Amino acid sequence: MNTRERIKSYIEGVVMQLLDDDEDIFELGLVDSLFGLQLVSFVEQEFGLEVDGDDLDIDNFCSIAALDRFVNSKIIPSVER
């Protein structure tokens, strides 16, 4: 499974419905700020990343596509080192 599929599977499993990749899960009222913290934990554990304070922007976590972009932006620089 690629990054987007792993994220999609996790989020859809929690909200118990299928989502388009660009749907804002917070704006739709499917999740709350507590789930935002769970997303941070999921990203750190699932992808072996450290989410810094500067990364804690709702725009990074609001949709499957946004989270995929965020995770890949963190993975690619660490691979290039």
Score class of each variant (00 low, 15 high):
I76E: 15
E12V: 12
L18M: 08
D52N: 13
I58T: 07
I76L: 15
L18A: 08
I64E: 04
I64R: 07
S9A: 10
D55M: 12
I7T: 06
L34E: 05
N72E: 14
R6Q: 12
S63Q: 01
I64H: 09
D59W: 03
N2M: 04
L30F: 14
D21V: 07
L28G: 00
D24S: 14
S73V: 10
R4C: 02
V79E: 14
S73P: 00
P77N: 14
M1E: 00
D52M: 14
I76G: 01
F61S: 04
G13H: 01
I64Q: 05
D54W: 05
V31F: 09
V71H: 13
L19A: 05
P77K: 15
E12A: 13
R6Y: 01
F61R: 14
M16N: 10
V43Q: 05
T3P: 01
V43A: 07
F70Y: 15
E12M: 10
F35M: 03
I58A: 10
D20I: 00
D59K: 11
D55Y: 10
E23H: 02
V40S: 00
L56A: 04
E80L: 15
V14P: 01
E27M: 03
D57W: 02
S78C: 11
D57R: 11
E50C: 07
A66Y: 04
N60A: 08
V43L: 08
D55R: 12
L67Y: 00
E5T: 12
D22M: 02
R6G: 00
D57V: 15
E5Y: 02
G29P: 14
I58D: 03
N72F: 06
N72Q: 15
M1Q: 03
A65M: 11
S78W: 09
D54G: 14
L67D: 01
D20Y: 07
V14W: 09
L34D: 11
L30N: 04
M1G: 13
F26R: 10
E27T: 11
D24Q: 09
D20H: 04
I11P: 03
S41Q: 09
E44T: 08
F35T: 01
L39Q: 10
I11W: 06
Q38V: 02
E44N: 09
S41G: 07
I76N: 12
Q45G: 10
V71S: 11
I76P: 01
I64P: 10
D24L: 10
E12Y: 10
L34I: 11
G48Q: 06
I75N: 07
D57C: 05
V15A: 04
L39H: 04
G36P: 00
M16H: 08
D57I: 14
D22Q: 13
D55H: 08
S63F: 11
S78A: 15
I25A: 08
S9L: 07
S78G: 02
I7N: 04
A66I: 00
M1N: 05
I11T: 01
I64K: 01
I58P: 11
P77L: 14
F35A: 00
D54Y: 06
L67K: 02
D68Y: 02
S63N: 03
E23S: 14
Y10L: 07
Q45H: 11
D32F: 13
V40D: 00
R69M: 07
M1P: 09
L34M: 15
L18C: 03
D52Y: 07
